[in-house]
Design a protein around this nucleic acid. Structure first.
Lengths: 338, 338
DNA sequence: GTAGGGGAGTTATCCGGTTCAGGAGAGGGA
DNA sequence: TCCCTCTCCTGAACCGGATAACTCCCCTAC
């Protein structure tokens, strides 16, 4: 029941281990006849190269890592990561790379996971997501000298390669769309304030809203509860906004529910925009206007870069397409001033 | 910049590789003084055991696998898998086990992934999810002789160990709750018909509903669109149901939206129950009555069993707690017959 | 006739850690 | 003094492949 090795194949074929190694790796040094015979035997007994043995020869581990540092309940409800992973794996699978996944609870733990994986030669590189300002993980990974692709804004990725999309542009597009619809009081329910992409959006939002009667950003932890609470507070203020942009879909749905509960009509009294389109945004009534990104493609681009990096190529920052606005029923003209 | 090996430590400590190996593995054969010295040096230079070298000696790979066979868009929107993974990893992390993840598009591809991982000695075992009837993956995995924990009903898991929960009981609890509220026409919007847990629920539902004026089950692919379509059809029938049970939360939310769009009041005219509680179920209005399970715990139990199996222990089927009903605003008494 | 060249294999070594079979030296009992 | 045991440590082999270097052998060319 032991797994077959090249030595077994060699015995069967009546040649040396080396001939088998050459034959199975397409190297010169064996005749075509012998090669065919060896390949046939390998096939027949179901031989697979032992990844440990290969890795031991300084070869690649054929594996990359991803550590996610978010509470389980948020990870579960945010389609983003699963879609990202799907996209990443589409590329990895083609090159027979595996993905090592770990959910951690702190950046310190995350760094520790990287150090361990790298020290144990388990992985050839990692993806880094959810960049913070002065992120200790960046310096840590730079120090390790491991191939890394940062999925996030290059301004904070240090010397590490980055794959990113211009959230600022998406914000500007959204705001000017809302302004064109006659909205003067726009609010934004944002995600975690420490994240770089939150800050980028914050800043772009503030700039795009200059000159408007009112604009405000509220930070949350991405959960529906906080999204609902923020919405309730916003809609309770005397000069309540006529449009709210949410940083994820679960908060947008929560906000929509709050509006309905408070008898605020969507889109007549309130327009809602969700960041990141998802089936969820489309099944609620009215369907949510959303900032659509091709997240699997985003992940695929990151994976391609990481593999290139591992092969020793140098990889300049790659700017993916910005999210684009998909108008649906949740946005409409602002009701003229009452 | 090379990663340190035990040979480096040996040189530094002035002993042989073997002494270092013994010292670092807590084996007898070195004095406490020497052991302390070696451990200190290892610590100082940041040594980690090369996992490939260890694996090569017949040791465990310290890694388990999970392949998910669902389209990316469904995976993303269903919190189930991410929560399951979080739970699994909580246990794995304690034992320094890693999780290898792959998203595949067919069972054939999934089996191929298992064969490859196992053949390459990358993993010590796998989780099998989304069991079908006459599942070829079961026989395939039995043939490989690899440790496997099936997350699903033991009736179809063959000789493989199973961790499961009694969906039938949850269905019965739900139906009797609805009946107690005066509902006589109950519908169920179910998931993929091929899945064992769908069939288990189907059967339990049919049995629990015996004697009712009407009960019907509609199968879907778990997407919000199909959930909405099914709901629309159900609510358009002359004898429309007064209660609908959905197999996941995204379909329940879609159903709720359809009801609202059709001016069917929830819960006055229609009660809604969602399978698997999630933040999503709680943020919509009215909040959804849901079948709550502790999914991370479910994953944790499965992981414990898989690790036990890998250690050579025998693992009987483990029945986890059944989902329990969490009543919220989406269910109420059936309106008396008009 | 012989040097040269290449095809087809082989042997030896290495990767980093584990394991087994000793071996040196100290200590103890008869 | 001899032998035995125990502690602490070492050399060698091994895991499954990759790779450098070498050996044949046959064919060609000068």
């Amino acid at each position: 029941m032991k797994r077959p090795t090249i030595a077994d194949i060699a015995t069967r074929a009546g040649v040396s281990k080396v001939a088998v190694s050459y034959a199975l790796n397409g190297q010169p040094g064996v005749s075509e006849a012998t090669r065919a015979r060896i390949v046939a035997i390998a096939d027949e007994i179901g031989w697979r190269p032992n990844s440990a043995a290969r890795a031991l020869n300084g070869a690649r581990a054929n594996c990359v890592g991803l550590a996610l540092c978010r509470p389980a309940r948020i990870l579960g409800v945010e389609p983003f990561f699963m879609e990202l992973i799907s996209g990443i794996e589409g590329v990895l699978a083609d090159r027979s790379y595996a993905l090592l996944l770990q959910v951690v609870t702190s950046h310190q733990q995350e760094s520790e996971v990287y150090r361990r994986w790298w020290g144990e030669s388990r992985i050839d590189g990692v993806f880094l997501v959810d960049l913070h300002y002065s992120d200790t993980r960046v310096t840590e990974l730079e120090r390790l000298g491991m191939p890394v692709v940062v999925i996030g804004h290059p301004s904070e990725s240090g010397t590490l390669s980055a794959v990113w999309s211009d959230d600022g542009q998406a914000v500007r597009e959204t705001v000017s769309y809302l302004v064109a619809l006659g909205h003067h009081r726009i609010a934004r329910v944002a995600g975690l304030p420490g994240l770089v992409h939150t800050a980028v959006r914050d800043q772009a939002f503030a700039q795009a809203c200059e000159g408007l009667a009112e604009h405000v950003t509220v930070h949350t932890d991405y959960t529906g509860e906080e999204g609902a609470r923020a919405t309730r507070r916003l809609l309770s203020s005397p000069d309540r906004p006529t449009a709210i942009v949410y940083d994820n879909d679960i908060m947008a749905v929560a906000g929509l529910s709050v509006a309905q509960e408070m008898r605020v009509e969507v889109p007549a009294d309130l327009s809602i925009v969700a960041w990141d389109d998802s089936p969820l945004a489309q099944v609620v009534r009215p369907p949510l206007t959303a900032l659509t990104r091709d997240i699997p493609a985003y992940g695929a681009h990151a994976a391609q870069r990481l593999l290139a990096l591992i092969s020793g190529e140098s990889v300049p920052p790659f700017e993916d397409r910005a999210a684009s606005l998909t108008p649906r029923g949740s946005t409409g003209p602002a009701r003229s001033h009452t």
